[in-house]
C-alpha cells in the first residue's frame, strides 16, 4: 500500500479530522501556556467538561435517529435544582440522585410521547419543553432557597476520586462507554441507525418507530438529568438561569464530531471529542488570558473552521482515490443493521 493510499484511507475515517484538529489545539495551548498541561488544569478541564460531554452523548442518539432535543439545557438546570432541593431537605443521597434523574425522565417522556406518538415536530416540542423547564427552574428558585448542602456524601459526588481520577469523570466515562456500546453493539443501536437513515425502510423491516423514538428521547432526558445531578454537586448552588445555552453547545459538539443532523450517522465517542474540543477551547483561551468577550466569537469561528476542515479532509480523501467510489462508511455500516432488523 502506497503512502498516498494510506493517507487517503486515514483521512477518510469519519472523525479523524476533528481528532487531529483537537490534538493540534491541545499542542498550541500546551506550547503557549506552561500551565495548560499541569495536573491541576487537566483535572479542572475534565471535571468541567463532563456536563457538555454527557449532554452531547445523549444528543447523539437523538440526532442519529433523525430528531433533535433542545430541552437538555433546561433539563440540566431543572434537574440540578430538584437534586439540590431534595438534598438540602436532608433526603438520602440516593433519593436526591433519583429525583434529579427522574426529572430528566419526565421531560424526556413528554418529549418522546408528543414526538413519537402524536407526530409533532421535534424542534418545536423540545423548544417548548426548553421554555417550560427553564421557567420551572425560575419558579423553583423563587420558592425555595437553593444554596449549599452540608453533606460530604453529596459533595463527594463531585470532589471524590478513585485512584486519583475524579468521581464525576469516572461516572461520565462509564456512561459514555455504555452509551457507545449500546449504540454500536446492540439491536437497539442498529435500529436507531436504521431509523435515522430511512425510517420507512426501518418500519417495513419491522422496527417499531414510535417505541424507538420514545426510548431515544427518554434516554436523552435521563442522561441530561444525570448531568444535572453532577452539576448540582459540582456547584452546590443553583441560579435561575442555570443550564441556559447548554443545548446549543451540546448540539454543536455532536456536529463538530461529525454526527450528521440529517440523521443516520455518528457515534458517541465522536460527539465526546466534539464536546472536549469546545470545552478545551474555552478553557485554553481563559488560561491564555484572552478577554472572555472574545469567547463567543472564537467559538463560532472555530466551529465553522473545524467542520470546514473535516469536510476538506473528506474531499481530499476522495480526490486521492478517484477510482474507488467515495467511501461512505456509515452508510455501509448501516446497511447491515437493516438486514439484522429484517431477519
Amino acid at each position: 500500500m502506497s503512502i498516498r493510499d494510506r493517507l487517503a484511507r486515514t483521512a477518510a475515517v469519519e472523525g479523524a479530522a476533528v481528532t487531529v484538529a483537537f490534538i493540534v489545539m491541545v499542542v498550541v495551548f500546551a506550547v503557549s501556556s506552561p500551565f495548560f498541561l499541569t495536573g491541576q488544569n487537566l483535572h479542572n478541564l475534565f471535571v468541567e467538561s463532563v456536563f457538555t460531554v454527557l449532554l452531547a452523548a445523549g444528543m447523539t442518539y437523538v440526532i442519529i435517529v433523525g430528531g433533535i432535543d433542545l430541552s437538555v439545557g433546561s433539563v440540566l438546570g431543572l434537574s440540578a435544582g430538584m437534586t439540590l432541593m431534595t438534598a438540602s431537605k436532608g433526603a438520602p443521597l440516593l433519593v436526591a440522585i433519583l429525583v434529579g434523574v427522574a426529572t430528566g425522565l419526565v421531560v424526556g417522556l413528554v418529549n418522546g410521547l408528543l414526538i413519537a406518538h402524536l407526530g409533532v415536530n421535534a424542534f418545536i416540542v423540545t423548544l417548548a419543553t426548553l421554555s417550560i423547564g427553564g421557567g420551572a427552574l425560575n419558579v423553583l428558585t423563587t420558592r425555595v432557597e437553593l444554596t449549599g448542602v452540608d453533606s460530604t456524601a453529596f459533595t463527594n459526588l463531585s470532589q471524590g476520586s478513585v485512584l486519583g481520577i475524579p468521581a464525576p469523570v469516572l461516572m461520565t466515562l462509564a456512561v459514555v462507554l455504555l452509551l457507545e456500546f449500546v449504540l454500536i453493539a446492540t439491536p437497539f443501536g442498529r435500529r436507531i441507525f436504521a431509523a435515522g437513515i430511512n425510517d420507512s425502510a426501518a418500519h417495513l423491516a419491522g422496527v417499531n418507530l414510535r417505541r424507538l423514538r420514545l426510548q431515544v428521547y427518554v434516554l436523552s432526558g435521563v442522561v441530561a438529568g444525570f448531568a444535572g445531578v453532577l452539576l448540582a454537586a459540582h456547584l452546590n448552588s443553583v441560579q435561575p438561569d442555570l443550564g441556559t445555552g447548554f443545548e446549543l453547545t451540546a448540539i454543536a459538539a455532536a456536529v463538530i464530531g461529525g454526527v450528521s443532523l440529517s440523521g443516520g450517522q455518528g457515534s458517541v465517542w465522536r460527539a465526546v471529542v466534539g464536546a472536549f474540543f469546545l470545552t478545551t477551547l474555552s478553557q485554553g483561551l481563559q488560561l491564555l488570558g484572552v478577554d472572555p468577550t472574545w469567547f463567543t466569537i472564537v467559538t463560532g469561528v472555530s466551529i465553522v473552521a473545524a467542520i470546514a476542515f473535516s469536510r476538506g479532509t473528506q474531499w481530499f480523501a476522495s480526490s486521492l482515490r478517484p477510482a474507488a467510489p467515495r467511501p461512505s462508511a456509515p452508510a455501509a455500516e448501516a446497511a447491515e443493521p437493516t438486514h439484522a432488523v429484517n431477519r
Partner: peptide, 15 residues
C-alpha cells in the same frame, strides 16, 4: 463550504 444551516447560523449567532 457545505456546512449544516443549523451550525453555520449558530456560529454566526455567537460571532
Amino acid at each position: 463550504l457545505g456546512l449544516p444551516d443549523f451550525i453555520a447560523t449558530l456560529a454566526m449567532l455567537g460571532v
